[in-house]
């Protein structure tokens, strides 16, 4: 019994770890490769979550929906809608310098959150969307569906990892890093800086949308509190910084490591005396905040530092 409990704890840990790994890979495209400071991760995550939930749930009078589409189509929809939202945001904001882009993206995430809370015809407001299906739910029941879902999440992570790694090594990725490291010289070399940045932002947002969609299918229920900017945006930044920005494997490693730390400390803090146990989440938040300071000051390149691929010439 102990062992099965531990096994299912591990499964749930790795499912959320996988979802955070996706967010981290997405942020790595935007920040690690493109140098774009997106502080509105929670907003795009929420857009993806609601899109996939609305596309895949059965008809309900309380919110837009009733399309009953299969989950993979819901996730593709999540990527599309989050990507289009990202495109609209990028068209407006991508020219802004880093600090200003941070403010603008937080503002947009806040506006999106207000939309989720207030437009109840679309999202059922704060009551949320329930009975969201899981993928392959016809074949599995009960707790085994968690295991199947774990596989599903990590297949998506693997696909995104392969795609983003290809992007990193491609001429496109090289131009992107050139822009990140020296905008003026990239511009002088004839790179269309704004176009590259918009593409980066859109790709990142689409992946964030997929992550959001997966979380909706995992919890089977979605309400605006799911897009709490704290847990999503902030943790993802800490994960990428600790894992090593610019390195896709670092992004995944950082996500899994920080998420494990975050979850396992919960076990310990829950054993504290009751008057402290209620405040345990604040202790964890405090520690994550301080961990970020440590990483920024002493450990800036992360667990797996960025390694640029070697330059090869045709006649080598």
């Amino acid at each position: 019994m102990e062992l099965t409990g531990l096994f299912f704890y591990l499964v749930s840990l790795l499912i959320m770890g996988g979802i955070y790994a996706l967010l981290c890979l997405a942020l790595n495209v935007q920040w690690g490769m493109g140098g774009l400071f997106n502080a509105g991760i929670a907003g795009f995550y929420g857009v993806g979550a609601y899109t996939s939930a609305i596309l895949s749930t059965a008809a309900s009078g309380r919110h837009l929906g009733g399309f009953s589409m299969p989950v993979p189509i819901g996730l593709v929809g999540a990527a599309l809608v989050a990507g289009i939202t990202g495109w609209a945001v990028a068209r407006i904001c991508v020219r802004l310098k880093s600090d200003y882009l941070a403010m603008a993206s937080i503002g947009i995430a806040e506006i999106l959150r207000l939309v989720f809370v207030n437009e109840s015809w679309l999202t059922n407001g704060s009551l949320g969307v329930s009975r969201i299906p899981r993928p392959l739910s016809d074949f599995t029941t009960g707790r085994m569906s968690d295991v199947v879902f774990l596989g599903f999440v990590w297949v998506v992570v693997l696909l995104v990892y392969v795609a983003t790694s290809r992007l990193y090594d491609s001429p496109w990725g090289r131009s992107l890093r050139a822009i990140r490291d020296n905008e003026a010289s990239a511009l002088a070399a004839g790179k269309n800086v704004e176009k590259y940045r918009i593409q980066t932002f859109v790709i990142g947002c689409a992946v964030m949308g997929v992550a959001g969609g997966l979380s909706a299918h995992y919890f089977r229920f979605l309400s605006p509190t799911a897009t709490d900017p704290l847990l999503t945006t902030f943790l993802v930044w800490v994960m990428l910084m600790a894992g090593g920005s610019g390195n896709n494997r670092g992004a995944i490693l950082g996500a899994v490591t920080i998420w494990t730390l975050w979850s396992v400390t919960e076990i310990f803090t829950n054993r504290l005396p009751p008057e402290w146990a209620t405040r345990s989440s604040f202790i964890r938040m405090l520690l994550v905040g301080l961990l970020l300071q440590f990483v920024l000051q002493r450990f800036r390149s992360g667990l797996l530092p960025e390694k640029s691929p070697p330059v090869r010439f045709r006649n080598d």
Partner: peptide
């Protein structure tokens, strides 16, 4: 101050973390 010689974006990220530290201290 330890981050002042780096690009300012690192200080911005750090101030994000400090915001969280302040808030969790208050809640604690």
């Amino acid at each position: 101050r330890p981050l002042r010689d780096l690009p300012t974006i690192y200080t911005v990220i750090s101030s994000f973390g400090i915001a969280l530290v302040f808030r969790s201290l208050i809640q604690l």
